[in-house]
Simulated scan of single mutants.
Amino acid sequence: MSQTLLGLVSHYSPSRQERAACLWLTEHMRSLGYDRAFIDAAGNAVGVLGNGPRQVVLLGHIDTVPGELPVRVEDGVLYGRGAVDAKGPLACFTDAVARVGAVEGWQWVVIGAVDEERDSLGARFAAGQYHPDYAVIGEPNRWERVALGYKGSAGAHLTVRRRQVHSASGEQTACEAAVAAWLAVQAWVETFNIGKTRAFDKIMLSLQGMESGGDGLEQWARLKLGARLPPDLAPQEWYRRLVEIAAGAEIQEAGYAVPAWACEKNSALVRAFLSAIRAQGGAPSFVYKTGTADLNVVAPAWGCPALVYGPGDSALDHTPDECVSLAEFEKAVAVLAAAFQGIAEKG
């Protein structure tokens, strides 16, 4: 069994508590023969192998959602927080690069990014530090699949204010106005989605929180909205639409918004992965995800061929049942190693 996978999953590292896991990973990378391994200014664990002018960056994330789970191996399956999302893919990257080793003319950079489950601070830092020829992002999508797209994300606080009135006045309350604004936004989204068959092309709207209050002179109601955005709707356009739809409400951006991103399908990187999957006896396929990943952060900045790859069933993300098949993990390591060798050989 991979000591990288077991070691990473055994180091509980929810967002903002990743340092112990990063220290372990960098030390382990050195033991695997990496030329350099260090923790960067953002707290990311970074391993570098090779010193050629051409560079491949493999960006996984080392943080997890909260909720520590017992780590155990049972019937060829590793259970534990992060086994799927996304220490499995990160461990694959680490082991595959060690297996390939130094290749003349190339440099492999493996990054265990911090804070992906919150604000992607690690990926935002890395985006300005590297200029790779190819990029692979680590997320679970099964070993036979390559993910080529992730939806954008934009959070917002919608606040309505009304003057304080007697409950018998018949005037609209702030809470009633907030509900009306929510229904208007919901109706607009439903109209936008008409005729779109793929979930990747639709807006996915969610109401994530609500609160209200007052000071005796003014009453207010606030809704926390989340939206997963398709490629043809940028976050700033979404915010502009919210202002129009919820006329009179205050719209405040919440968190870091990122646009959707779809990778080039016919690239040397994609072809190398398809060939490597077939060589392992798999039938490769593509997937476009309804979630958001660090791909959305780094791909626009790096502007190079990219894709998302990693073992594991993403349906287990963030659940108490996180686990990954050790056989699938080994298949994924073999695919990654063969893909990197293929890229290096073809230049």
Rank of each mutant, 00 (worst) to 15 (best):
L158G: 04
R142N: 11
G312D: 02
L269Y: 15
Q129C: 11
I245T: 13
R81D: 06
P305T: 04
G303H: 08
E218Y: 01
R145K: 10
P132T: 12
A21M: 09
L58V: 09
R145W: 09
L316W: 00
Q164T: 13
E218N: 07
G43E: 01
A344L: 07
A20N: 12
F93D: 12
L217N: 13
T64S: 02
F192W: 14
A123D: 02
H157L: 14
G33Y: 11
P320C: 00
A154V: 03
A86H: 02
I194S: 13
G60H: 06
G281Q: 04
L5G: 12
L5K: 04
V110R: 10
L274T: 09
E237D: 09
F329I: 00
A135V: 13
W220H: 05
Y34H: 01
R228T: 05
R72M: 05
P231V: 14
Q186A: 01
T173L: 12
E139D: 11
R81T: 05
E322I: 00
V109P: 00
E322V: 00
H318W: 06
A337N: 05
N141T: 13
A126N: 07
R72V: 06
A301P: 10
A249N: 03
V71R: 01
G101H: 07
L229I: 04
A41M: 12
T319W: 00
Y130T: 11
F200W: 11
R228A: 01
W188N: 06
L158D: 07
A262M: 15
M204A: 12
P259Q: 03
E330M: 06
G213P: 03
P284S: 05
Y288V: 13
V258R: 03
A91K: 01
Q219V: 13
G105A: 14
L295S: 02
A123E: 01
Q252S: 12
L8E: 03
W220E: 05
E144I: 02
A147K: 11
L121P: 01
N51T: 15
G138W: 10
Q3K: 14
V57E: 08
A42E: 06
P66H: 09
E264Q: 14
G47T: 06
W182L: 10
I343H: 15
A246I: 14
A96V: 03
G342H: 13
S167V: 14
L32D: 05
E328S: 02
Q55T: 15
S10A: 14
A180I: 04
Q107G: 08
E68H: 02
A332M: 05
V65K: 10
V185F: 06
A254S: 14
W106Y: 13
A41Q: 15
A180Y: 03
A234K: 08
D313V: 01
G255T: 07
L183S: 08
L242H: 10
G138K: 09
I251H: 08
F340Q: 14
Q341D: 15
L229S: 07
P140D: 06
Q129I: 05
G282M: 09
A180G: 04
F286E: 00
L121R: 15
Q236T: 07
V308K: 06
P140L: 04
S206I: 03
G216R: 03
S153Y: 05
S206R: 08
C263K: 06
L5Q: 11
S15E: 12
K331M: 08
L49V: 05
L307D: 09
S10Y: 10
A247H: 14
E253N: 05
V9D: 03
A199Q: 12
